[in-house]
Design a protein around this nucleic acid. Structure first.
Lengths: 110, 110
DNA sequence: AGCTTTGCTACATATTTAGTAGTAAAATAA
DNA sequence: TTATTTTACTACTAAATATGTAGCAAAGCT
């Protein structure tokens, strides 16, 4: 399982530019969606799978391992949960929601 | 070429939840990297390819078309450029840079 | 007219994601 | 204690996506 480590060559940067490492991590299917859904509260694998509506267990498992290695997710007694870092990242993604709502208006007439 | 339209079923939401449509769009390889690199200034296809360090022309072309459909990128006399919406989105991604720098410190000792 | 740059496309290969089925371990119920 | 259910996956195949290299047509420059 290739994990984009900051400081190592990643997609977009041979020198492992931090932001490119992050983009490499988040730019994989479901990565941001999982963080978003986990913010609703810690939960089990299956519940998380349902929250995501259509993710395959293969992909969910892979993403969970990557995000855990990335210190964004951890396992607790309640199941999978966002770490402090994960929460921080969520807070940075949160503003995208309002923007996305505005952005969506451009596609309404289709 | 499947473009994740807000309001239509997308990865993570049958109802086309706006944020999920955005995550579907940005959660593709290079999408955020391209936006990031374009912020350095409008440029030609080949220059953009070089800025990205290792993107294949096939993928770059595909992402450019998607991001153009998404109204984040447009073609100008100077080449490809961020639109107003694209700039807005960049501004929202910008804070990730500082966070990523902090985050990266956890992987330094490897 | 010839050379270079640009913006791609074609094509073959490799990697990633999806989808379905099933299994071992743990929790719960009888 | 045994049976049943739930959970967290893994295995496997198929489909979709990304990579990498080559090259070509159009535009611009000399």
């Amino acid at each position: 399982m290739s994990f984009p480590t900051p400081g190592q060559p990643v997609r977009g940067s041979q020198s492992g530019n931090h932001i490119m490492a992050l983009f490499d991590l988040l730019g994989r299917s479901w990565a941001m969606g999982i963080i978003w859904r986990l913010k609703e509260g810690s939960c089990t694998f299956r519940v998380l799978q349902e929250r995501c509506e259509s993710i395959s267990p293969t992909t969910l498992n892979k993403r969970l391992k990557e995000l855990t290695t990335a210190l964004l997710i951890e396992r607790t007694m309640e199941g999978y949960a966002l770490t402090k870092k994960g929460e921080e990242l969520f807070d940075l993604l949160k503003p995208l929601e309002g923007w996305a709502k505005e952005w969506a208006r451009h596609f309404k007439t289709q």
